[in-house]
Simulated scan of single mutants.
Amino acid sequence: MTWNGFQRRFQMVRDNKLFEMFVITVIIFSSLMIGIRTYQLDPLYESILLTLDYAVTLFFLIEIMIRMAAEDRLLNFFKKGWNVFDFVIVVVSLIPMDSTEYALIARMLRLFRVMRLISFIPELRVLVTALITALPRMGYVALLMFIIFYLYAVIGNLLFSQINPNLWGDLGISLLTLFRVATFEDWTDVMYETMAVYSLSWMYYISFIFFSAFVFLNMMIGIVVDVLAEEHKKMEAEKMGLTLEEHESFEKRVQDEMQSLHTKLDQLMAMQSDKK
């Protein structure tokens, strides 16, 4: 059989849904083995788990080689970020766990095997891609949030440092206190303590919570939802074999046609009503 024949078979295996489900099952099983090893086990069970780990590592190595061989060109495999992600995880998991020098590192690196679920489940890929894409926009919101935190921390230090130095003694401690207030961790105790001296200090806390918990949090959520919608459109476009622009143009044409049909239907109904 020629190489092209082998390649077609590798492609059939790679695209087989049962094969994908089996790989996902092995990934979950591998992650469970790492969790089991956190308990004190009998040496017999330890040796069994070590043997199973070698078997899983060998399976992942064969699986990644099948996916690489299924590509028309090997370089095409590394053009996709998720393929590179899987390749790196498989390579680093080749570090033997029975080596006393690298046992801890090998066990920690094997934890990242569960991350391979992301590359096999499209919905998880969309979520992670949306999160990474949203990070630059979220960075500006985080910068604005830091400015507000900084201003309120300095004001808190000036007003309340004499009341409780443990909470407002300097800028760093004041920032930690504000983080406590923003996460609603017993923030009323902090407020009532300062209200005993400054009766209107509740305005300080309420305004800060308004900015941190309502404004900035909703801005973060809005950015993530917006990017997530864009990523879903890209995924649908890929399934249809279109670019994002072509998919948006297709959706617009469908919406225009539906609107035109509704208009014609309304006109026909109006004509029938006039005849009656």
Score class of each variant (00 low, 15 high):
residue 158 L to V: 05
residue 186 D to R: 10
residue 94 L to T: 06
residue 61 L to C: 09
residue 105 I to A: 10
residue 260 S to D: 13
residue 220 M to A: 03
residue 255 Q to F: 07
residue 30 S to F: 00
residue 15 D to M: 10
residue 206 I to T: 13
residue 267 Q to P: 00
residue 231 E to C: 04
residue 87 F to H: 03
residue 79 K to Q: 13
residue 248 E to L: 14
residue 131 L to A: 11
residue 104 L to R: 12
residue 84 V to P: 01
residue 257 E to K: 06
residue 202 W to D: 09
residue 186 D to P: 07
residue 222 G to P: 05
residue 99 S to R: 08
residue 141 V to L: 10
residue 15 D to C: 04
residue 253 R to F: 11
residue 245 E to A: 06
residue 173 I to F: 03
residue 114 V to I: 15
residue 69 A to E: 11
residue 105 I to S: 04
residue 9 R to K: 12
residue 225 V to I: 14
residue 66 I to Y: 13
residue 205 Y to C: 00
residue 228 L to K: 06
residue 163 I to A: 05
residue 139 G to I: 03
residue 273 S to T: 08
residue 129 T to Y: 12
residue 95 I to D: 02
residue 96 P to V: 04
residue 117 L to V: 01
residue 197 V to W: 11
residue 217 L to R: 05
residue 27 I to H: 05
residue 60 F to A: 02
residue 256 D to P: 00
residue 154 V to D: 14
residue 149 F to A: 02
residue 248 E to D: 15
residue 100 T to W: 14
residue 159 L to H: 03
residue 162 Q to D: 15
residue 76 N to S: 11
residue 126 V to K: 10
residue 129 T to D: 14
residue 63 E to F: 10
residue 262 H to W: 14
residue 27 I to N: 02
residue 145 M to F: 10
residue 59 F to G: 04
residue 127 L to F: 09
residue 65 M to D: 09
residue 5 G to N: 12
residue 102 Y to C: 05
residue 203 M to C: 05
residue 255 Q to S: 07
residue 89 I to D: 00
residue 248 E to S: 05
residue 116 R to Q: 12
residue 11 Q to S: 12
